[in-house]
Design a binder for these strands. Structure first.
Lengths: 354, 354
DNA sequence: AGTTAGCACTCTAAGTCGAAGAGTGCTAAC
DNA sequence: GTTAGCACTCTTCGACTTAGAGTGCTAACT
């Protein structure tokens, strides 16, 4: 890693500051005038030249000002930026919005609200993925007859997620029978993972046909849940991003929007990106970092929330590369904290029970 | 209503046809040349002038060609357009995509798939709202203990929708008790509306504390469900719309996008717009028709799907006013039919049971 | 009376030109 | 190492021009 002189750091900082504000290339003269530097523009010019040579800045046109490169932004985020705490007033405002929701809401209502708050607070697009159990354990099974041969399976996992699935049985079956089956499965297999259930089922006496049928479905659902690292993704504030000058060309705008619209791609991308982050950890992807070429010119600030060893989801902000990181990062971190609390409050206490 | 001569109809038709294709104002000369009219451009010019005077066309610039007005498009859709059947090949393709989904999927998975198919088929943005029961009847209640005092209520309605809600009880309560309570409620109140439940509950002996607690929650959920005319709205293909030339200015694009992003507004708008349509009926909103001013320059083609007297939802396409209605309308109609079938197949047979 | 040819006119889109302004690199002096 | 100065480049913007498309009107034709 190159070592920058203090003055180079200062100048890089100022360039990024100014560019973040105006979205315009910034030149030596502007820099000196705006920030009352006690060196001349020529000196700044020299420094700009070396910073450009080192790859922190770039010159789009031979004689236009400098623009920070991806590398420049990464250096800024890693070294130069001081993340101040989120001001008390903002925190209050967010908490206020967050807690005025009725208590008795489903998980996905939190997500939507969180996405909405984060979008307005950051002035960019937000993404929130549902919290999923890190390893799936059965908490409760409900079998509900819907019509002749159709049964609705509702599976509540440790952590409070639930999955639902319609299945069609071979023959007619009535609700009493279903209740008995679900009772049996619940008493025998509650708080077990899919693997554990499979093992136990093998050991014990051959099961009844009905039991086996539903048990298979239960295990399938749990396996799927295990393999799907990221749940439903909610986005909000997409129109915020389109307001940024870098997306004035509708072609660029579409490119960015497409990323947010293709949920499956987005899901797998999120899970890959955040995989090796601890809960509470922040991951910053600048210019896509080679993972999605379409992310050129965009950045993601992602945080993982949830309960360690139990459930986790992702929350984050999508915006232009030129985003006010020092404000966005604490906001995302704070929202992640809130969501973690929310998860703990409502279901966390069960975690230490099994 | 003005009466147009055959030639005027022809010319209006051609103007709309051409404008739909090119998004450019169209003039007399082009018209004659492209369509080999056996009248001269001067004649066409005269007709264009009267059509403009009548308000079917408009001249953006004194000496540019004509552009159809909202009124023009409405006349076109109502009178001129012949909606051909959707070609067999398209129908096959759509069906193929639709039925390759696994059978055992939740309602919202259908919606998403339907939205995605409709978006690609129409090349515009699509919206699908979840099918909601026209009047809510209780089908099955499940009470699931999640932690100390927290209980997950899952309510399955006639029609197969379900609502879930976390509630916190006053005191600890165990799963056996919950199962008994839910059994009682199920046997006594299945297939009843919220009103019927209230009446019956009043008549019979004062209920136990627990029963009353949950029964109240059940009724609340059902009331809410009754009052919420439109369920979750899924959108897809927003980026398609941004590709249209009328949204090249990012400001226009944002305006349109915002409509699709604000789900609550969108929901109430949809329910208001489609309210007095029969199932299978198509509603076409051109230029917003004064309901949402932001819809200037955009159109909606909406259809209601579901089962008469039982469940209904909305599916539709959002695009520029200049959309190929004669292709979009049959597509939407066909998709609505498919969704109706889907709803009937999976839950419809229960409807005639109570 | 309806249709057409012809013509003068208008307006947009696209290209050219020049001046202003911002920024650069380099050199020579401090 | 820093600075002043200078020549140069490049973008932006307005003014101007031209080509092309389209219009409205009038007079002639069927």
């Amino acid at each position: 890693m190159e070592i920058l002189s203090d003055r180079q750091k200062l100048i890089l900082n100022l360039v990024i500051h100014e560019f973040t504000r105006t979205a315009q290339p910034v030149g030596s003269k502007t820099l000196v005038e705006k920030f009352h530097l006690d060196v001349s523009s020529a000196t700044v010019r020299n420094e700009l030249a070396t910073l450009t040579e080192m790859g922190f800045l770039e010159q789009r046109h031979t004689s236009g000002g400098r623009v920070p490169t991806e590398k420049g932004f990464r250096y800024f985020v890693r070294v130069l930026m001081q993340t101040q705490e989120l001001p008390e007033s903002s925190r209050r405002m967010i908490e206020h919005q967050f807690y005025q929701m009725q208590q008795d809401q489903g998980v996905d209502d939190w997500m939507k609200l969180a996405a909405s708050i984060l979008a307005t607070q950051s002035g960019a697009a937000s993404l929130v993925s549902a919290p999923l159990p890190i390893r799936t354990e059965l908490r409760h099974l409900a079998l509900i007859k819907v019509s002749g041969k159709q049964v609705l399976i509702i599976l509540v996992m440790a952590g409070g997620q639930f999955q639902q699935r319609f299945v069609t049985t071979e023959m007619r079956i009535d609700q009493n029978e279903l209740t008995m089956l679900s009772n049996e499965i619940n008493t025998r297999f509650a708080n077990k993972t899919a693997q554990q259930i499979r093992q136990e089922a093998l050991i014990t006496s051959p099961a009844s046909e009905g039991l086996e049928f539903f048990l298979n479905h239960v295990m399938n659902i749990m396996y799927e849940s295990d393999n799907m690292k990221t749940g439903e993704v909610y986005t909000d504030g997409i129109s915020n991003v389109l307001a940024e000058p870098e997306f004035a060309e509708s072609e660029d705008a579409r490119r960015a929007l497409k990323i947010l619209e293709e949920k499956p791609t987005l899901q797998s991308f999120l899970s890959r990106a955040i995989m090796d982050q601890k809960i509470g950890g922040i991951q910053i992807l600048i210019g896509g970092e080679g993972m999605l070429t379409n992310l050129y010119n965009c950045s993601l600030v992602l945080a993982r929330y949830g309960i360690p060893e139990s459930v986790s989801g992702t929350i984050g902000v999508f915006g232009p590369m030129r985003m006010p990181y020092s404000r966005t990062i604490p906001t995302v971190r704070f929202m992640a904290g809130l969501l973690s609390d929310m998860v703990s409050d409502s279901i966390g206490n069960t975690t230490f029970r099994n």
